[in-house]
């Protein structure tokens, strides 16, 4: 097999770990917000620390991103699409950092304790303000739906590269043998 230029292993591990976590969080989020069953409490208790973990990983990933040069996109892609691909990645980074911050901020503004695990909780990051709480609670939903929409487009694009165009884009993010070296 022809070798392709890949993302460094750190970026690939972070990508797939976070892809799993973020998709799980989107599904947990919309389910818990639309249930009154006993699982509501279990899911919210999971949602908070998992969301904060995503925030921390996203910051590590962003720092990591400045340490390497991403593999170039193939020249078969028109410039407009290259731009769209890069812009969508910027949007994904922005959302995976903003969304947990909004979650944390809205609980702060609503005077909810931001409970993690084992009784530990995080300090508020915003002043107590109920109008702000309501605004951020709605924003948390709209950012989640936007994030989901971009992830869907991203998934479709990744599959188009991997299955139809069969260029170097998909293997640059996977763990197939011969990658990166």
């Amino acid at each position: 097999m022809r070798s392709v230029e890949s993302f460094p292993i750190s970026a690939r591990v972070l990508h797939w770990l976070m892809a799993t976590m973020i998709l799980a969080m989107l599904f947990i989020g919309v389910f818990m917000a639309a249930t009154v069953g006993p699982v509501y409490h279990t899911l919210v208790d999971l949602h908070r620390p998992l969301g904060i973990a995503i925030l921390l990983l996203a910051l590590v990933r962003l720092a990591n991103r400045f340490l390497f040069r991403a593999p170039p996109l193939p020249d078969t892609l028109p410039p407009a699409l290259k731009f769209a691909a890069r812009a969508s990645h910027v949007v994904l980074y922005a959302l995976m950092i903003a969304q947990p911050l909004v979650g944390w901020g809205m609980l702060s503004a609503g005077a909810y304790p931001v409970t993690m695990w084992g009784g530990a909780s995080l300090p508020p990051i915003l002043p107590y303000d109920t109008a702000l709480f309501a605004t951020l609670r709605h924003l948390h939903s709209w950012l989640a739906f936007s994030l989901f929409a971009v992830v869907l487009a991203h998934l479709g694009a990744a599959l188009l590269h991997g299955l139809v165009l069969r260029d170097d884009v998909f293997p640059s993010m996977t763990f197939r043998r011969g990658n990166g070296e």
């Binding site: 599904f27 389910f31 639309a34 009154v36 869907l152 998934l155 599959l159 299955l163």
Partner: peptide, 25 residues
């Protein structure tokens, strides 16, 4: 390429309860 994102979107909509107006929310 088309069906996979569509399937994920459908699962999301079902999870959110938008297809089950009788769900207790």
């Amino acid at each position: 390429v088309v069906a996979a994102p569509a399937a994920v979107a459908a699962a999301f909509v079902a999870t959110a309860g938008w297809l089950s107006p009788d769900r207790l929310t």
